[in-house]
Amino acid sequence: MDAAASGTTISEELAEEAESQNLLTLGIEEEYLLVDAVEPRGVEAVEQVLDHVPAEYSESVQHEYFRTQIEVASPPQLELSGLHAAMKELRGVVAGAAEQAGARLVAIGAGPAAGPAARLVDKPRYHQMRARFGDLSPGQGMCGTHVHVSIPDRESGIRVLNHLRPWLPVFQAASANSPLYNGRDTGYASWRSMLWERWPTVGPTPQLDSFEHYEELVRDLQASGAMLDEGMLYWYARLSAAYPTVEIRMGDVTPSLDDAMLLAALARGLVATLLRDIGEGAPAPDVPHPLLMAAHWRAAKDGLEGQLLDLATREPRPAWRLMRQLFDYVQPELERHGDLEMVTVLMGRLRAHGTGAARQRAILGRDGTVADVVDWLARTTRGEA
């Protein structure tokens, strides 16, 4: 919930390499829940965990809103294999630090078990948020994934945001990983999405005329009191305030790093494809805001295991059909960026095992408990399941 940071600043060498090949760089942020070593409830251990994180990783690991949460951010990468290696290392380092602090690191969208409401991290900004907005973020915390894709300039970024709007429910569905809350199944694949929408600036990115229009909206929203600063612009896609990137706030953090890499690669492929379309003069799709809201609701409800609203035909369709449509649409850019082979494999794996929400429910369906779900999540977050 803090201002976005996609790891360390991009090096001049990486920027020059990307520009020379007309390729886009990629970064990812993940938020995690810290849970008790034995019980499945959240535990306020972030300060102790950070104490155990080696100093060389300090720029990539930081606080989140609650003391039960922690966040990592990768350095920008050009190759998907490099991003995978960086995130695997960060997950392992922070999981190890959590265990040293008597906790477990869990990649899940919302606290699955009942427990006391978590206290805020002691930062002035967070206290200001609580004072103004009250208890809009209940329980033990909400954990998401944010992907940063480089853009040539901010005006190009604005046009990309306009073209992204109908695709973002697909990412939300594919990342669904919070069916449980307070020890029960909510009936939603992503209950975090429903909790998150209570904040006044959460929702689909509006149609934007220009970067000047974007800045005007940011100023007006701050003046209205709906957000303290630009870091609280919680649209599903936005321009990064700190980096020359489009930030796609795609949904729940995924338990499997493979799934995170799949969605990050598809996001880069989509931005690159949209930049090509924009260069060829393609207009942004005209999607009414109420239909976008309905599509995001359906994504949160069903995940990939049910129906999604096809915003081109305005009819429900099997979610996996739209996922495949996204893959087909961006395939040339996946190939150009060197991601096609890995993404094809990862698509097959996601199709075989389902979203995090589906896998949690499968454990419960085998007479498992919430504790069993959290045990599996902790192993998977570490890369052991």
Rank of each mutant, 00 (worst) to 15 (best):
R130T: 08
V374Q: 10
P200K: 04
D302H: 14
R184I: 10
L208E: 02
C143M: 15
P40M: 09
V160C: 09
E215D: 06
L239Y: 02
D277V: 00
V374R: 10
P40C: 09
G183Y: 02
S175M: 12
D220L: 03
T355P: 02
W167L: 10
Y236E: 07
P76W: 01
E56K: 13
F171H: 10
P169H: 12
H84V: 06
L221S: 09
D286F: 03
L275P: 02
H148Y: 11
R238Q: 04
K301P: 00
G203I: 04
L180P: 12
G139K: 11
P116G: 13
E13V: 15
K301A: 07
A86C: 12
P152T: 08
A101H: 00
I151M: 00
E79L: 04
A176E: 05
G96H: 14
S193I: 00
E305C: 02
G269N: 05
A15F: 01
D367R: 15
T344C: 00
L83P: 12
D302Q: 05
D258R: 05
Q21A: 14
P290L: 01
K301Y: 11
V330Q: 04
M142Y: 03
L217Q: 08
E315F: 02
Q222K: 09
A241G: 11
R119D: 14
V373Y: 07
E384I: 03
A113P: 11
C143S: 15
E333W: 04
R130N: 13
V72F: 01
L263K: 04
Y32V: 10
D367T: 11
D259T: 11
E216D: 12
E16Y: 01
A95V: 08
L377F: 08
F327E: 10
V370P: 08
V202F: 07
L263E: 06
L364Q: 07
A86I: 06
M293Y: 05
P138R: 15
H213F: 01
H148W: 11
S224G: 04
A174S: 14
G203T: 07
G348C: 02
E47L: 05
W167G: 06
R314D: 00
L33Y: 05
V370G: 05
T369E: 04
E230V: 11
K301L: 12
I28Y: 07
A37F: 01
V170K: 08
T186S: 15
G225V: 06
V147M: 10
T380E: 15
L274W: 02
V218A: 12
A312C: 00
L291V: 01
Y236F: 11
V253E: 08
L350K: 06
L164Y: 13
